[in-house]
Simulated assay, not measured.
Amino acid sequence: MRRKIIYLFVPVFALLIQWPMGAMAQQVAEGMGDRYIRVAEIGELADSVNVWGDVGSSGRYIVPEGTNIPELLSFSFGYTQLRGNESNIDWSKTQIEVKVSRYNKQRKLVEVAMFRYRYHDPEPVRMFEFDLQNNDIVSVQVRRKPSFTDYVGVVAPVVGVIATSFLLIENLRGNN
């Protein structure tokens, strides 16, 4: 009787263990494919390019061969809003940096091109002429000059801690 129970228990136990593992493997495989974005048509010559930083959708893009940087930025939904608690951003003080890196023959990562310009200025012509290659890394950073509220946000807590410490020390001296 015990043997029959064991013979029935082992296959059921194996199925119970295997099912979650298979489901987990499927979820991992699906999750890994989330950041591969195919823009190129099936059968079209394509390059895989990494887009990182302050863009609407970063990830690894499969783009048509000969894609330039403005096209790639369009595929990745352009520049993102600056992070923070500001609702209205003064874009006139905003600077965009686009850096393209790739591996050389010695398998070392080198910067190939760097484009800096203000948001309201026209994009540099070289960005339109620059053809991306397979496995290029395009990093985008949106910067802005600090405003008065940024400085206040840094200085006010420091002044508050100093004032509180001073009042605490004075209060402790007065109680002795």
Rank of each mutant, 00 (worst) to 15 (best):
L15V: 14
I17Y: 10
G22D: 12
G22I: 10
Q26A: 12
Q27Y: 11
Q27N: 10
E30D: 14
M32W: 11
G33P: 00
G33H: 09
Y36H: 10
I37V: 15
I37K: 05
R38K: 12
V39N: 02
V39S: 02
E41I: 06
I42A: 14
E44R: 04
E44G: 01
A46G: 01
A46V: 02
D54F: 03
I62P: 02
I62S: 05
P64Y: 07
E65A: 09
E65M: 06
T67M: 03
N68D: 15
N68Y: 05
I69S: 06
P70V: 07
P70I: 07
S74T: 14
F75S: 03
Q81P: 01
Q81K: 13
Q81L: 12
R83Q: 13
R83Y: 12
G84N: 06
G84Y: 07
N85T: 11
E86P: 00
S87C: 00
N88R: 10
N88Q: 13
D90Y: 05
W91L: 15
S92K: 11
T94A: 15
Q95H: 02
V98R: 03
S101L: 12
S101E: 15
N104S: 08
Q106T: 12
R107Y: 14
V112R: 09
F115D: 05
Y117F: 15
P124N: 07
R126V: 12
E129R: 13
D131K: 15
N134S: 11
N135W: 08
N135F: 14
Q141S: 14
K145L: 14
P146K: 11
T149L: 12
Y151Q: 03
V152C: 01
V154G: 01
V155W: 11
A156R: 10
A156P: 00
P157M: 05
P157K: 03
